[in-house]
Amino acid sequence: MNSQDDWIISSLLEDLAALALANDRISIADLVEALGARGFGPLLVMLSAFLILPVGMLPGLPGVVAIFMILIGGRMMTGETTLWLPARLRRVHISGHVLAVSVARAQPAALWLRPLLTPRLVALIEGRIATRLIALILIGTGVLIFLLGFIPGLPFVLSLHVLMLGLALSTRDGLVAALAYALMGPEIIFIWRVFT
């Protein structure tokens, strides 16, 4: 797709919108194929946005997103740059209409974020230590969402730092990664209060 805006998040949303408009039902395999060439960052943006936007209300979707997070974390831990999906997960479908609505709601936020995101403090997101730290965070978050995703609001809360890490990886912005790490503190307190 030829895009008038080559910023990675804008082009991500444009590709998702085109996919949604062209199909009533969209398989996970189609989504990954459309976005996977950009790396794990945009995939994490999409996955976490699914839990924040209307599409996240679909039954079972938090569990699917959680499995994705675990798979991406596992691939990052081993140094892989592409995502492998089991056949059963590849066949999961979502509504094209719901995806289109979600993309439309995300576009104003993307426009607002664009001037704020820039390559800086890249050591916080690149290199073996940073990559493995992010991988561990994704695996841990995925496990929590998979096990506790039935608690109202929990998938939304846990998706916030994943969204920020996805943006950081997509734009090589280590400051956003640092904010994501800091955000995990309040999230942990929230989870602690839920269970105490």
Rank of each mutant, 00 (worst) to 15 (best):
G41C: 02
I52M: 11
V65C: 07
V64L: 14
M46V: 15
I70H: 05
G63S: 13
G74N: 13
F68Y: 14
A34F: 09
F50V: 02
L71Q: 12
E33T: 14
R38F: 03
A66Q: 06
L51D: 06
V55R: 04
R38H: 08
L58V: 15
V65W: 04
L44T: 00
R38T: 00
M57I: 09
M57C: 11
E33V: 10
G39E: 09
L53S: 03
P62L: 05
S48H: 09
A49D: 14
V64K: 14
G41A: 09
G41S: 05
L44A: 02
A49C: 14
L35R: 09
F50D: 03
M76E: 01
G56F: 09
E33Y: 11
L31R: 14
P54S: 10
M77C: 00
F40T: 00
G63I: 01
A34M: 13
L53Y: 13
S48F: 08
I67T: 11
P42D: 08
I67H: 10
I52P: 02
V45L: 09
I72Q: 02
R38Q: 12
I70P: 00
G74V: 00
G60N: 04
A34N: 12
S48P: 08
F68C: 14
L44E: 02
M76Q: 05
V45Y: 12
R75G: 04
L43C: 05
S48N: 09
I70L: 10
L61K: 04
L51Y: 09
P54N: 07
A34D: 07
L71R: 15
P59G: 01
M77S: 06
L44I: 08
A49F: 13
A49I: 01
I70E: 15
P59D: 03
L43W: 07
M46T: 15
P42W: 08
P54A: 06
V45I: 15
I52W: 11
L47I: 09
L58D: 11
P62R: 07
V64M: 13
P54F: 11
L51W: 05
E33I: 06
L61Y: 03
R38G: 08
V32G: 03
S48Y: 10
L51R: 09
M77V: 00
V55N: 05
L43I: 12
L35G: 01
I67N: 08
G73Y: 07
F68D: 00
G56H: 10
